[in-house]
Simulated scan of single mutants.
Amino acid sequence: MVSDVAHELRTPLVNVRGWLEAAQDGVAEIDPPLVASLLEETVLLQHLIDDLQDLALADAGKLRVHPKPVNVRSIVDQVAAAHRGGAEAVGVELSVHVDGEPDLSADPTRLRQSLGNLVSNAVHHTPPGGQVTLRVRSSGDEVLIDVEDTGTGIDEESLSRIFDRFWRAEKSRSRAAGGSGLGLAITHHLVQAHGGRIEVRSTVGEGTTFTIHLRSGAHRRPAGPSSASDSA
């Protein structure tokens, strides 16, 4: 774990240091494009640190949620709105379909974080012209939230490792394109903290669907001495 963290931190730090040293030596000019590049690297570092904090809380048994009645339609609309610009920029259509008005109690911040991780992952793995769909429906005593894509798909061997930390289905993918490798692991922990579960189905070359199962109208609050909600 420590080795993986060091590897993930090293690349953006080396990039930032290299450009700053070049500027100090007069080899590079601090112009707007360089500032934008350095800002992007520091944002990546911040995201990685935030993800590591969430995982540390999960390992300590302190990753807690604060459930309350939520409007699921509003939450998925917010997640879609936050990612639609990025999806459109790479030629991917992002849509939302909500069946009725599902009754759900959840931590809205953590639910948005979980869905955001899944949507971001789906967009990154969907080629131009593809689709990513957020779908919500009720099934028995559960509310099901699907994040479905028409992307590259995941082979059967990889599916067993999909929620492992720092693991990427495509080893050649850069951090900028593939994220920190922690998003799915964090999503798995957050769904469990809600008393739910997450499953994944995939066909190589056709796409992948992640489904979050949460108890419908469940107002039971997971026990625990502290909360991670403010660290999102």
Rank of each mutant, 00 (worst) to 15 (best):
F210N: 01
H66M: 08
E199L: 11
G196V: 02
E41S: 12
L190I: 15
T208I: 03
N117T: 01
G181Y: 11
H194N: 10
D54W: 03
G130V: 10
I49W: 04
A23N: 01
G26N: 09
I198H: 05
T42W: 09
V76L: 03
R84D: 14
S105M: 03
A36W: 07
D54H: 09
V90Y: 06
A89F: 05
D59S: 09
P69R: 02
V76T: 05
I162R: 08
V35A: 15
H7S: 10
S202W: 11
S37R: 15
P102Y: 03
I154Q: 01
I154H: 04
V43N: 12
N15K: 10
A60Y: 07
A28N: 00
H194S: 06
L38V: 11
G116I: 06
A169K: 09
T152I: 14
V90T: 14
S180F: 07
D31N: 13
R10N: 08
A223S: 11
H66F: 02
I186N: 10
Q53I: 13
F210P: 01
E170W: 12
P222M: 09
L39T: 15
M1E: 09
S229G: 00
Q192S: 12
G100D: 11
V143C: 07
R175P: 02
G195Y: 05
T211M: 05
A185T: 07
H125E: 08
V65M: 04
K62Y: 10
V5G: 02
T133R: 15
R165E: 14
P32S: 09
E21A: 14
R175N: 01
G129W: 13
H125K: 07
S158A: 15
S138T: 14
D107K: 03
E29I: 11
G26L: 10
V204Y: 04
W19L: 14
V92P: 00
L20V: 15
E41D: 15
A82I: 00
G183M: 03
G196W: 03
Q131L: 13
P32A: 10
E170A: 11
S120R: 06
R84F: 04
R168H: 14
Q46I: 05
A232N: 13
G178F: 06
I49N: 00
E40I: 05
R10G: 00
L214Y: 02
D50V: 06
S114I: 09
A58L: 08
I145E: 07
G129R: 11
D31Q: 13
E206M: 01
V43T: 13
S37G: 00
P67W: 08
V70Q: 09
L63Q: 02
E21W: 01
D141C: 00
H188F: 14
G61A: 04
S216H: 13
S139L: 10
